[in-house]
Simulated scan of single mutants.
Amino acid sequence: MLAVQTHEITKHFGEVRALDGVSLQFEQGIVYGLLGPNGAGKTTLIRILATLSRPTSGTARVAGIDVVDDPMAVRNRIGLGGQFAAVDDYQTGRENVEMVGRLYNLSANESRKRADEVLERIRLTDAADRPVKTYSGGMKRRLDLAASMIGRPEILFLDEPTTGVDPGSRLDLWDLIEDLVEAGTTLLLTTQYLDEADRLADRIGVIDHGKLIAEGTSTELKNRLGGDVVEIHALDGDIDSSAAVLTPIAGEEPVIQGQSLTIPALRGVDTLTQVVRGLDEAGIRPEDIALRKPTLDDVFLALTGRVAEGEDAEARPTGPRGRRGGR
């Protein structure tokens, strides 16, 4: 059975088309990663699948159930973790999780039992009886994940679960997510962190301006860029002159991201050699130069024309960026 299936889903807010004909599907037992810039429609799609919002048109099924026709049956099979930890700072961690269990109509005894299970699973047992206001940001996100797990969902929707947490807590959450999948939970994960999607997602969909513009495994998406790339890291003041050297070699303007300039290496090592010679003849000495495989950063940039908001690098527009990936 398919975990999620949508067909031509649209969602309009007045004149704004938050979703514009999104069709996707994926099977149970995997992590499906949904990538896209802010405002692309990721959260809107999650809200429709979680029965919190009705589509303007189109159909959506979760675990084979239509989200409009039978929303209660869908809710019995899903869990949801939003962009921000939905926890009560004045309750203890255990009380927060037990409260969600009661909202699932579990008995008090069953809520306590399951709360103990999930708190142990996410390694919060030692802090379970402390007020949540004493928790770090990463601990609150883990607690929110625990609350979404107490109903033992078949399918878990996580909307940017690691946004705003420190790197160590991100790694902890990644481990927890991988444990959940090994235990049989299906996940739909939205994220702005490309390394997160690369590590966790079995399949990835890229959404922009409400449309699904690309879909595949991480490797398949990287292969769309057509092979290796040459990347140079220019010194301050050399970006424009370096771009002038790279443009005729590549036949298109390089993608510039901070001090980094990237072009497709259509001739592999020969392109790298041509770049080195061109820079040398122009009297430009870069900090670094390399021939490498494309990354999800390159894919995202080619498809959307933007750097993912979760990335640290600063984008510098250079003209039409999306043409290598194609929309």
Score class of each variant (00 low, 15 high):
D89L: 14
T6I: 10
R121A: 12
D280P: 00
D312T: 14
V97N: 00
S218G: 15
I150H: 02
G81H: 00
I48Y: 05
G326A: 12
A234G: 10
A183D: 15
R94G: 03
Y135D: 05
V230Q: 06
L34H: 10
G184Q: 12
I65P: 03
D66C: 05
E154W: 00
L246Q: 02
R17P: 01
I239K: 05
R123K: 14
E311V: 08
T273D: 15
A183Y: 01
R123Q: 14
P320N: 13
L279K: 03
V22L: 12
Y32I: 09
M99Q: 12
D88F: 10
Y135C: 02
K211Y: 00
A250D: 05
L119V: 08
A18W: 05
A290M: 09
R61N: 09
N38D: 13
V31M: 06
V4I: 15
M1N: 12
R141S: 07
E215C: 06
G310M: 09
K211G: 02
R316L: 12
R203G: 01
R61W: 03
I213T: 08
I213D: 07
A214P: 01
A183F: 00
A201S: 15
V276K: 11
A60D: 10
K211F: 01
S218P: 06
E182M: 05
G184S: 13
I204Y: 10
S23G: 10
R285T: 15
E314T: 15
V4A: 02
S148W: 02
G322P: 00
A85D: 14
L80M: 14
R323S: 14
L158T: 08
T10P: 00
R121N: 10
T247A: 15
E215A: 11
E311C: 00
G184A: 12
R121K: 13
G205K: 04
V62S: 08
E314Q: 13
E160I: 11
E98F: 01
L212F: 11
E8G: 10
T6W: 07
I204S: 02
G268N: 12
G283P: 06
A214Y: 05
G58T: 08
L296V: 08
A308N: 11
D179S: 14
E311K: 12
K222N: 11
L80V: 15
F157G: 08
L296K: 06
A108G: 04
V307I: 15
T185E: 05
P294H: 07
S260A: 14
L200C: 08
L188I: 10
G258P: 04
M99G: 04
A115Y: 03
L187E: 04
D208R: 03
D280Y: 06
D202G: 09
R112P: 00
R321A: 14
Y90F: 14
R324H: 07
R316D: 01
L221C: 11
A85Y: 04
I289Q: 07
G137F: 04
I289M: 10
D198K: 06
V31I: 15
T51D: 03
N109G: 12
E178N: 14
T162S: 15
E160W: 10
Q83H: 09
D126I: 07
G305R: 01
K42F: 03
L200W: 03
L119D: 03
